[in-house]
């Protein structure tokens, strides 16, 4: 499936973002856009600043300078849970599920992000609360089914297999009903066959109307699934373009692919 999304509507705008931790500049004047409905790959060698970029987009870090706008709203000083409600969700490179909760409950926590009722409704079991709870459960089950985890719904997250845990992370992120979903190395630790399945899944996620930002090391996967790619190195953006353009970009080859070519004998 290679019909590139041609919507030009910008969903997220990273504008000249710099982050410094003490003397270290993790991101240095990085700018790029994510367009609605696309799968954007964010690649770069280890330590290039990919995850930092994720963290600044989800409000974990505040940029030292520059700004990020999501669907027209500036994210500066916004609380992390508010950013989630605005429509940015993410998964974690090192799986961070709620281990002692079931798969279904994990997804429900994400789905709760949009429930309006709270304490008093729960205590009085108002009709509104019952309805929202039922809707959340239905949505959560549907997402588990989508991820192929329906049978594991009542399993504790910690007891799921590695691959299922990775998929559950994606389901939980999708449950928050985001516009943009950021996947941080979702294929880490997967074998080639599992990666093919995952590539397919990522496309299906996009086809459901989500915009996807993908951090990934595996070049084949990134080239196969993304519409556009942004390449970081040492905190700077060194290239941006379609997979074909990136493949032929000399700077990228030098920085990233070149290493692989040397390795491949």
């Amino acid at each position: 499936m290679s019909d590139t999304a041609t919507t030009t509507q910008t969903l997220l705008e990273v504008h000249d973002v710099t982050i410094k931790f003490g003397g270290i500049t993790a991101l240095d004047g990085v700018s790029f856009d994510i367009r609605e409905g696309e799968i954007l790959g964010l690649i770069g060698p280890n330590g290039a600043g990919k995850t930092t970029c994720f963290n600044v987009m989800t409000g974990v870090y505040q940029p030292t300078s520059g700004q990020i706008r999501f669907a027209g709203t500036g994210l500066a000083k916004m609380k992390r849970h508010a950013i989630t409600r605005l429509g940015i969700a993410r998964t974690f490179q090192n799986i961070r599920l709620f281990k002692s909760m079931t798969a279904l409950e994990n997804v429900l926590v994400g789905a709760d992000a949009h429930s309006r009722v709270g304490f008093f409704h729960a205590l009085l079991r108002t009709p509104l609360q019952r309805r929202e709870e039922a809707e959340s459960r239905e949505r959560a089950m549907e997402l588990l089914k989508f991820m192929g985890l329906a049978r594991r719904a009542d399993e504790l997250a910690v007891n799921l297999s590695y691959g299922d845990q990775r998929r559950l992370e994606i389901a939980r992120a999708m449950a928050t009903n985001p516009k943009l979903i950021c996947l941080d190395e979702p294929a880490a630790g997967f074998n080639p066959a599992e990666k093919v399945v995952l590539m397919d899944l990522i496309k299906k996620v996009r086809d459901r109307g989500y915009t996807v930002l993908l951090i990934e090391h595996d070049m084949k996967l990134v080239m196969g699934v993304t519409d556009r790619i942004v390449v970081l190195e040492f905190g700077r953006k060194i290239a941006e373009g379609t997979p074909a353009e990136i493949r032929d970009n000399p700077a990228v080859i030098a920085a990233y692919l070149g290493v692989e070519e040397d390795d491949a004998s």
Binding site: R80, F98, M101, E105, V109, G110
Partner: peptide, 18 residues
Amino acid sequence: RAWEATREDEDVAEIMGV
């Protein structure tokens, strides 16, 4: 659920909208 998620991993709970 929000309490449980917070106890398990406060940062992640926050990022999941809690």
